[in-house]
Design a protein around this nucleic acid. Structure first.
Lengths: 206, 206
DNA sequence: TAGATTGTTAATCGATTAACAATC
DNA sequence: TAGATTGTTAATCGATTAACAATC
């Protein structure tokens, strides 16, 4: 009997739930409800209960959800009950911002290497790292068994870098280059393009 | 008679269509089809035709879509047939990356000011701008009639900054702070949080 | 013309919501 | 206990797809 498959749209909301209850925990809160969580996120309480119920019974009638317990469960579900090493490709302004980003702490990730193909940058310090040569990308990533990477290079180099990452065994790519990538079915891609997000809003402005 | 309302999920795909055909134009292409565009984006041809047909008839049977014409039409629909000034709040690493970002050219946006509340940063140069004092945010933004802003401050300052932006008349906020914002119904928010995107992928990894 | 591709309809598929029994 | 809130079902709502007449 197959494990029933969870809709991707549900998976996409779980990290929001996790972020929100982690914040509640920081605030010293111990218990929450689907209603409170929904108000914080702008999502209906029914949807939150339905989403969570796909994975188990995490709450108690009458009282709600123990925050610490739900954090643990969601972390396991999302596989961030461990630390994923991340490789960054591109040591420009975006790569620089990500390599120094403090927001990965307690969220399951840490930067472990950064690459560039510019001789002027290779070997220099960036954040806590020495910029590596993209020419060695495949062997370096393979050697350290890195499975998650970020692409922070210009659009015209994005696909080439993606191809190398895939060859190196990377299975999850966060792409800051403003292009769609072609990848095999067992590789996951997420996109961050500020202009795309902005255009989604200007539609509604006059 | 009311103008029929377009689903937000459709609006969300239009910027992807626009980016893709702008890229085709750069490649020297003149004409495309819903099928080709769909292959580039991993979206079905039927969906692309249906989405576009919500706004008019932009193609010709047998031949497809004139790229330049479709770029013009989509730019108008998304209101990027003009240049929107953008204010950035937060002159840390993320603010620095965004203020220098070259990717807004031809996409309807330009950075016009950046703020920080750190006396060590106020008055210094960042990219093409002098960092302004967040204390003057409301008057500065009002004076220049800026309607679009980005939040690039720590999580615990995000809501406070959002409240100021709204008071200043901003209607669209791209939020890099890892929190959900409360905003009035006439203000639009989009979120960029790399950890959220990464967790969406690690779910599928083992 | 013959071939290709649109715009659109109807059918299918999937996601959200409302409601409530169960139960803490 | 009485009140509150879950987990779940069924109904509703919305989005996607398949198919094809229209037509370039």
């Amino acid at each position: 009997m197959e494990k029933k498959s969870i809709p991707d749209i549900v998976v996409g909301r779980l990290p929001l739930y996790l972020r929100s209850i982690q914040r509640m925990a920081q605030e010293g809160r111990k218990v929450t409800s689907s209603q409170e969580l929904g108000e914080r996120l702008g999502i209906s309480a029914a949807q939150i209960r339905k989403d969570l119920s796909q994975f188990g019974e995490f709450g108690k009638q009458g009282t709600g959800y123990q925050i610490n317990y739900l954090i643990n469960q969601l972390s396991k579900i999302l596989h961030v009950d461990r630390i994923w090493d991340i490789a960054i490709v591109g040591a420009g302004d975006v790569g620089n911002a990500v390599v120094r980003y403090q927001g990965f702490a307690n969220r399951g990730f840490r930067i472990s290497m950064i690459f560039d193909n510019d001789p002027a940058k290779i070997g220099t310090q960036m954040g806590d790292f020495i910029v590596r040569n993209t020419a060695n990308l495949i062997e370096d990533i393979r050697e350290q068994n890195v499975k998650v990477a970020m692409i922070a290079v210009p659009a015209n180099q994005g696909q080439k870098v993606a191809d190398q990452l895939i060859k190196a065994g990377v299975k999850a790519i966060l792409n800051y280059a403003p292009i769609s990538l072609y990848v095999p079915a067992d590789v996951y891609v997420q996109y961050i393009d500020p202009a795309i997000h902005l255009q989604r809003m200007t539609y509604y402005l006059d």
